[in-house]
Design a protein around this nucleic acid. Sequence first.
DNA 1: TCGATATTTCGATTATTGTCGAAACATGAA
DNA 2: TTCATGTTTCGACAATAATCGAAATATCGA
Lengths: 108, 108
Amino acid sequence: MKITDAVTALAAIAQETRLAVFRALVVAGPDGLSAGRIADALAVAPATLSFHLKELDRAGLVKARQDGRYVIYAANFERMNALLGFLTENCCRDSAGCNPKTPSNFCG
Amino acid sequence: MKITDAVTALAAIAQETRLAVFRALVVAGPDGLSAGRIADALAVAPATLSFHLKELDRAGLVKARQDGRYVIYAANFERMNALLGFLTENCCRDSAGCNPKTPSNFCG
DNA sequence: TCGATATTTCGATTATTGTCGAAACATGAA
DNA sequence: TTCATGTTTCGACAATAATCGAAATATCGA
């Protein structure tokens, strides 16, 4: 994962509403949730939710699929793991309990 | 780590300059770097850097200590690990290769 | 086709963020 | 104490982000 991708992904979940959306999708699992169900669950206006879902999608953290008149969103777990990998390898140290696969000596 | 703390920490590193600062501090290790050395390394104006360091500090991701007329900043590895723990436990699934200690069924 | 429901786009508004020059504030050295 | 150096605060500005009502778009069921 490239730095710019990491920044985009981090920014996507660095917002209360979006983090809540993403966590709801994590809990929902691969089946995902329709936009409407997310809006209901989190009590956020449809237009606002749509805006945030687009952000999460842009960051690659969710996948959207059309199901009839619903649009089902699901967390992209691979992407989230890639982000965790990036953070572990670049922003971490053994000494504090995390195990970077590559040492933290990269600074590009 | 509480949700609001996680959002704050994520927002802190969800910015190219700040992520670069933090990574430089990770590479530097516990000894840290003076503000000036960071500014030189990343070619960012002192006032701008100061603004970003304050953000990182507010998020708890760095520690500052005075050393003579220098201010030395060091990464707070414990905090970063707490953030990784939060993400692993709340935004992740076994299926995708990550091992949350608690299952992803928490949504508060 | 028509009406109902689901979702997104548009437009407008307000708030926040990132940036940097200049000035202020500290600290150590002469 | 005075000067030089390192850092932060201040003030201003442009850019971006978050919100939501209203309108547009899409799809299903009757």
